[in-house]
């Protein structure tokens, strides 16, 4: 009996990652369906970018069950998802895979996993937020300029012909413009941030330190005879 307790124990790091992830999953309506995965691979087959992933969408869920969250956090997969919802539409178990990947992204950002691919996406996301915070609307010119200045300045020069074409077609706003209710929007954002900090969502029915099928909370391991 004693030994059974140790089956499926995860390292502390894994436990923390899983806990953080499950908190994110909790926010997704019907997020708990993640435990219905039958590993059929329809998600992977439907994904237009799975060929460029290191871990397929199906494998993401398998790894989560297996208690290998860290491998997911370091993967290229979660950053390359273009959120086209093809997997979510087709999943026979109704799992909201795109939203699950959003949850994984948020977990990775929260826990500061910074692979090279992650960095690019995170830089873009952060600049996007900065942009929104400063003006209330997105100014695409500023976003793209800042992004390439941080990631690949050469590419910024490569974009000059496109920029010129856009200018000729009157498709560029030279300067960003703030919305009138900018102050009020900022207050809304600030308050929402406070709320986000104070919330501690209840976990789904998972014990965070179980792995394998036990992580699904449905099967109970019975000690075999003689043990």
């Amino acid at each position: 009996m004693e030994q059974i307790k140790h089956h499926g124990l995860m390292s502390r790091k894994e436990v923390e990652l899983r806990k953080a992830f499950l908190e994110q999953v909790h926010i997704i309506p019907a997020g708990e369906r993640i435990n219905r995965c039958i590993q059929c691979g329809t998600c992977t087959g439907s994904c237009p970018v799975s060929y460029a992933m290191d871990i397929s969408p199906r494998e993401l869920i398998a790894l989560f069950r297996a208690g290998e969250m860290e491998m997911i956090m370091k993967s290229r997969t979660i950053w390359i998802c273009a959120s086209c919802y093809a997997c979510t539409t087709r999943c026979p178990s109704g799992i909201k895979i795109t939203d699950i990947i959003y949850a994984l992204k948020r977990t990775a950002m929260e826990k500061k996993y910074q692979s090279q691919q992650a960095q690019q996406v995170q830089i873009l996301a952060n600049l996007f937020i900065q942009n929104l915070m400063s003006y209330g609307r997105l100014h695409e010119g500023t976003l793209i300029r800042k992004y390439y200045m941080k990631t690949n300045i050469k590419k910024l020069f490569g974009l000059i012909p496109l920029g010129r074409k856009m200018f000729q077609k009157k498709r560029i706003a030279i300067l960003p413009k703030k919305i009138k209710a900018y102050a009020s929007l900022s207050r809304i954002i600030k308050k929402a941030q406070e709320i986000e900090m104070r919330e501690e969502p209840a976990l789904l029915g998972y014990e965070p330190d179980y792995v394998g099928y036990k992580a699904l909370g449905e099967l109970k391991l019975e000690p075999r005879k003689g043990e």
């Binding site: 992204k105 950002m109 937020i129 929104l132 919305i179 809304i188 929402a192 941030q193 986000e196």
Partner: peptide
């Protein structure tokens, strides 16, 4: 009048409450 950016899918992937508040304005 005076609408703001919806946050796009990019925002959704970063912060839940904030992104929902921004788009619900």
């Amino acid at each position: 009048d005076d609408w703001n950016c919806c946050g796009a899918t990019i925002y959704m992937s970063v912060k839940e409450t904030v992104s929902l508040a921004v788009s619900s304005r």
